[in-house]
Design a protein around this nucleic acid. Structure first.
Length: 428
RNA sequence: GCCGAGGUAGCAAAGUCUGGCCCAACGCGCCGGCCUUGAAAGCCGGUUCUCCAUCCGGGGAGCAGGAGUUCAAAUCUCCUCCUCGGCGCCA
């Protein structure tokens, strides 16, 4: 969420930024927010004055009791007695306004970085870099959907039986490749200064809210019935929640976490999209990077995270492009976002494998993640960043497609060969 | 799941039975100031959130979270969460 003080003092700046999103709702919400905030402050002033009065009377009563002046005490108590009711009355109104205020504040998106390109939708994202080459196939490459079927690596039909659509049984060498990818991932993350973590995959509502996953994306996450627990759509949620309501030290920045977890997504808004295979599923494993730092360093860190993802995909020899996500496609939390889109020969297009975001102070403010330059110095709000390294199942689809051979076998990428006892997945 | 003990500021630790001198003691760390040639010691102010005020400054809230009783709650009552120990169950 945005800084309410900045909203009060510099509303024009924020309005100009919100306008870039070309969504009138945000402007309306913002104006309502300012109104609510004014109401709130007015009421708070009144309430605080009443409390002050009550505190004063309480003290007087206390003194009179010591002197045992009964008549005066009764008079004061009579006077004091009416105040709590008034406070309660105003406070109830104030609390409601506060709820409305928070409702708006939680839905107003982050400020966009000036280098975010303007655009209506993902068609207007800007390609900023390409790496590697498309594989030169002398045959018509198969899709991962066909490959996993032919090579007996995934069973979708039976998963439909046990669990429904968008589930899968991963089988045989693909299971081994998954673990190879995980081991390769954590090796790179360790070298790049990330602390390895496997987080809980169920988290409380306020952690989801703090990360920006709620309330805006309520339909996209699974909730446990009768409990205030959600299945995480990404380990970003527990990993940024890790330091919730903490005060960190600047000397420790950047704090980097390399998290591995299963992720659960309803894919509510994706009906009809990527319905076949394991490209888009309700559950998958993902290796994620998280960084906590401050405003001085977060843009450098943003590049560092993306570079780490690039190094990983380069090690696998996958041809990709780096994309600067435009205003219409960026979402509410990130101030700037780069995607890494890899080449899918069967689809003849680039598909998203990695998304790197600088959330600036937007998440950290919600989660009360602060830092000090030194002990005794005032606290400031941290910056948080996140990036995919690899979503395993999607990564596998990309590898399968790019490493397929004319004879129908799949070559195992060089860097993964040391983790498995085969160099090819062979058609039986 | 049951029983017991707990949750107090950056850390550490009193206060809870017996409500008010608790805007939370004594420490430790750190920040600012005074003092000093400099430092240490000493002294003063600070070290969470928030409101008003350009500045000086003045309020309010906060003792795991919420609700209640009361003129007044860290302290009493109820609900929830979490931690630790014991028992049970279990991969």
């Amino acid at each position: 969420m945005l800084d309410i003080k900045l909203i009060r003092e510099n509303s024009d700046l924020i309005l100009n930024n919100l306008e870039k999103r070309r969504n009138k709702d945000y402007i309306i919400m913002f104006k309502q927010l300012i109104e609510k905030d004014n109401n709130w402050r007015e009421l708070k002033k009144q309430i605080d004055e009443l409390r002050k009065k009550r505190n004063e009377l309480t003290k007087e009563i206390q003194l009179l009791k010591q002197k045992n002046e009964k008549v005066a005490i009764n008079k004061k108590i009579k006077e004091a007695k009416i105040i709590p009711k008034k406070i309660k009355e105003l406070d109830d109104i104030c609390k409601n306004i506060e709820i409305e205020k928070k409702f708006l504040l939680l839905r107003i998106p982050n400020l966009l970085h000036e280098t975010v390109p303007f655009g209506e939708d993902k068609g207007e994202n800007i390609i900023v870099k390409k790496w590697g080459k498309k594989p030169d196939f002398r045959f018509s490459p198969k899709s991962h959907v066909d490959l996993v079927k032919i090579l007996n690596l995934v069973d979708i039909e039976r998963a439909a039986k046990t669990s429904g659509t968008r589930f899968y049984f991963l089988k045989n060498q693909l299971v081994e490749l998954e673990f190879a990818l995980i081991l390769h991932s954590i090796r790179i993350l360790k070298e790049r200064g990330f602390n390895l973590i496997i987080p809980p995959t169920l988290v409380r509502g306020f952690i989801m809210e703090g990360g920006g996953f709620l309330p805006t994306f309520k339909e996209d996450v699974y909730k446990i019935e009768d409990e205030d627990l959600y299945l995480v759509g990404t380990s970003e949620a527990p990993l940024v929640g890790f330091h919730e309501d903490e005060i960190l030290y600047e000397k420790d920045f950047p704090i980097r976490y390399g998290g591995f977890s299963t992720c659960f997504r309803t894919e509510a808004g994706a009906h009809g999209k990527d319905t076949k295979g394991i490209f888009r599923t309700h559950h998958f494993e993902k290796v994620e990077m998280i960084s906590i730092t401050n405003s001085n360093r977060s843009w450098g860190e943003f590049d560092y995270l993306f570079e780490t993802a690039e190094l990983f995909w380069q090690s696998l020899g996958i041809h990709y492009q780096k994309v600067n996500i435009c205003t219409g496609d960026i979402g509410i939390v990130a101030s700037k976002k780069y995607d890494l889109e890899a080449w899918y020969p069967s689809q003849n297009q680039y598909r998203e494998l990695v998304s790197t975001s600088n959330c600036t102070d937007y998440q950290a403010r919600r989660l009360k993640i602060r830092y000090r330059e030194k002990d005794g110095m005032p606290t400031k709000i941290c910056h948080t960043l996140n990036s995919t390294l690899i979503a395993i199942q999607r990564g596998l689809t990309c590898i399968l497609e790019n490493y397929q051979k004319e004879d129908g076998n799949i070559e195992v990428p060089k860097v993964l060969q040391k983790y498995v006892d085969f160099k090819e997945i062979i058609l039986k």
